[in-house]
Design a protein around this nucleic acid. Structure first.
Length: 225
DNA sequence: ACGAGGATGCTCT
DNA sequence: GAGCATCCTCGTG
């Protein structure tokens, strides 16, 4: 049996970690001895020099120094910690912090393939009708694995939440722009296992923007930079 | 199958 | 007050 991925493993360039996490397993241990395991099939990298990065606003870009307040500071902590973020007032998203302490970076876990503890995953996700509804999106997998705000800041190199290296060979990995963004939409920072049915159904942001323009729908007034 | 629109509440301006 | 690293439901084909 393998050991959990250690802090050194996460203290690498964010895009390397993002790619290498594909095929790894995310393990959630419950107090009652239960175990839920998802095989990671989709990730996105968020870098310090990246307008979509939540830590972007934590940096004073005139001086390069970290501001004393704000949620984004939690993306500059030691590698292997959790950054858990609430989106649209409803869903929790799991990131693992990357790069050496003091440098910003994180990987968003966007989709997992259910491997073990599937019954418990359904309990967390009443809306799921079939297995592919359990982990095929960043807000879905946190429900399925019981990940919420109490995990923010947790050390993800040990129980109750940690990563294990791949158990089987990983398929081909494709790279695209990220999903659901209005800034940094041109950056190819999304990784997923080709052909895996548990990859999320989201549309890469540059494709979505092109569709909106074609339809003549109102464009975002925000200037990407 | 696919697309449109609503839910919903916190963070930052 | 705007914007958001999303998901679900309900139309239509």
């Amino acid at each position: 049996m393998s050991a959990p991925l250690a802090a050194d493993w996460f203290a690498r360039p964010t895009l390397e970690v993002s790619r290498d996490l594909i095929g790894c397993r995310l393990v959630r241990e419950d107090a009652g001895g239960g175990r839920r395991v998802g095989r990671i099939v989709e990730t996105e990298g968020y870098l310090q020099d990246d307008p979509a990065f939540h830590g972007w606003n934590a940096i004073d870009h005139a001086t390069g120094l970290l501001k004393p307040t704000g949620r984004g500071r939690d993306l500059f902590v030691a590698p292997g910690r959790a950054y858990v973020y609430k989106i649209y007032g409803r869903y929790w998203l799991l990131n693992v912090v990357t790069e050496p302490e003091g440098i910003g970076g994180a990987v968003l876990i966007r989709a997992v393939e259910p491997v073990d503890g599937i019954d418990a995953m359904y309990e967390g996700r009443p809306a799921a009708r079939r297995d592919r509804d359990l982990g095929s999106g960043p807000g879905k997998l946190t429900q399925a694995l019981g990940i919420g705000p109490e995990m923010h800041g947790a050390d993800l190199t040990r129980p109750p939440l940690y990563f294990l290296p791949p158990e089987h060979p990983t398929g081909a990995i494709d790279v695209t722009t990220r999903i659901g963004l209005t800034r940094g939409i041109e950056l190819d920072y999304r990784f997923f296992e080709r052909g895996n049915p548990h990859v999320s159904l989201g549309v890469p942001s540059d494709v979505a923007a092109a569709r909106r323009r074609k339809r003549g729908a109102p464009r975002s007034r925000r200037t990407p930079r």
